[in-house]
Structure formats: structure tokens, C-alpha cells
């Protein structure tokens, strides 16, 4: 094995190790390229995503692994400063949950989770920029991941790779495409 191959293999080993949760005492950590995430943090984002896009008769955020998409986009497509802000906002979010319910988000019931997240929809909620930013990032990426998922684009609003038509005048009734339009 020459030196280059050896180095490459070593990098592979290190690379795959980085993807495995490394156990600390109670809260294993996953290493992303730009930050480490604890299991608690992962659970929080997964629970928030599931609250935003819940499993109903159709798949929800956890089924579609939208939380993993949130982390991927935060890691790959977000500025370093915005990543820092995200984690700061996440800390504040945990404080807010504790303050409001004296519980962690994971321990809230469904109604409480929805109520808490809905407070972010009010324009004058009095939250810090970081806190509002954290919520809007989780929600934005969750919804983006959902509406661009294979499930959504094949079963809900079907994406056509090859429309084969441009109908400039599609008849519409009551804001819905008229049949045979």
C-alpha cells in the first residue's frame, strides 16, 4: 500500500467514525462537518419537525426524516455565523420551554408543543432575534424538505419532470382548476 492509499483509507476510517454517535455519559454526540450535535438536540429538532409536519393519514416529518434534512442543510448550506445563531437560539428555546411549562419540549403533550410553536407566529412575540431565527430555520427547512420530498412531489402536488405542454389559459372555478381544463 503506498502512502497516498494509506492516507486515503485512514481518512475513510476517520470519516466514518465521525458519523457515528460517540458516547458521552448521558448524551451522545454526533459530529457534523461544522458542529457537534447532542442526542437531546437532535431529538428536539425531530420533535419540532414532527409538530410542524405531523404523521396523519400520510407520512410525517419523522417518517420522511426531515430532521436529518434540517441538519444537513444547516451543516452544508448555512453561513457559520447563522449556525452559531441557530445554536444560541436553540438554547433560548429550551429555556423558554422550561420557563413556560417547567418541562423539556420532549415531555410536552402534542397540544402544548403546538401552542408553544404557534407563539412564534405572532409578530410581536417579544422573543430575541436568535430565538425567532432558530424557529424559522427549523420550520423553513422542515417545510422545504417536506414540499421537496419524493413523497410530496409524487403523492400530494405532483411534480412533472416533462410537462409536455404549456396551457396559458387554464380554466379555473372557485380557485380550483376546472375539470377537463
Amino acid at each position: 500500500m503506498d502512502r497516498r492509499t494509506a492516507l486515503k483509507n485512514l481518512a475513510l476510517v476517520i470519516g466514518s467514525a465521525a458519523l457515528l454517535p460517540r458516547c458521552t455519559e448521558h448524551n451522545p454526540v454526533t459530529h457534523f462537518k461544522n458542529f457537534d450535535v447532542t442526542n437531546d438536540q437532535q431529538s428536539l429538532v425531530a420533535d419540532m419537525a414532527e409538530t410542524i409536519i405531523p404523521k396523519t393519514g400520510t407520512p410525517g416529518a419523522k417518517d420522511l426524516m426531515l430532521d436529518q434534512f434540517v441538519w444537513l442543510m444547516l451543516d452544508d448550506c448555512t453561513k457559520k455565523d447563522d449556525q452559531k445563531t441557530f445554536f444560541k437560539g436553540m438554547g433560548e428555546f429550551n429555556d423558554l420551554t422550561k420557563k413556560t411549562y417547567n418541562k423539556s419540549f420532549a415531555d410536552l403533550d402534542k397540544k402544548q408543543k403546538e401552542d408553544l410553536l404557534n407563539t412564534f407566529e405572532k409578530k410581536s412575540n417579544g422573543y430575541s432575534k436568535e430565538l425567532n431565527g432558530f424557529f424559522s430555520t427549523v420550520k423553513g427547512l422542515t417545510v422545504f424538505g417536506y414540499t421537496e420530498s419524493k413523497y410530496f412531489m409524487t403523492k400530494e402536488i405532483v411534480y412533472e419532470l416533462i410537462p409536455g405542454r404549456y396551457n396559458a389559459w387554464l380554466p379555473v372555478k372557485n380557485n380550483i382548476a376546472a375539470k377537463n381544463g
Binding site: T51, I52, I53, P54, T56, G60, E114, L117, N118, E121, K139, V143, Y146, T147, F152, E156, I157, V172, N175, I176, A177
Partner: peptide, 23 residues
């Protein structure tokens, strides 16, 4: 385009994203 309500979370919000109601 379709008129999708951005506010809210949960079942109704999710169902709203699939509506084909024009804005």
C-alpha cells in the same frame, strides 16, 4: 400559483400545503 398559508403548525397546516387552490 397555489395559495399556501405559511402561518401555523400541525395537521391543518400540513394539509394546507397540499391544497391546489389558486391564489
Amino acid at each position: 400559483g397555489y395559495n399556501h398559508k405559511w402561518e401555523g403548525v400541525g395537521e391543518d397546516f400540513k394539509a394546507g400545503l397540499s391544497k391546489k387552490e389558486y391564489g
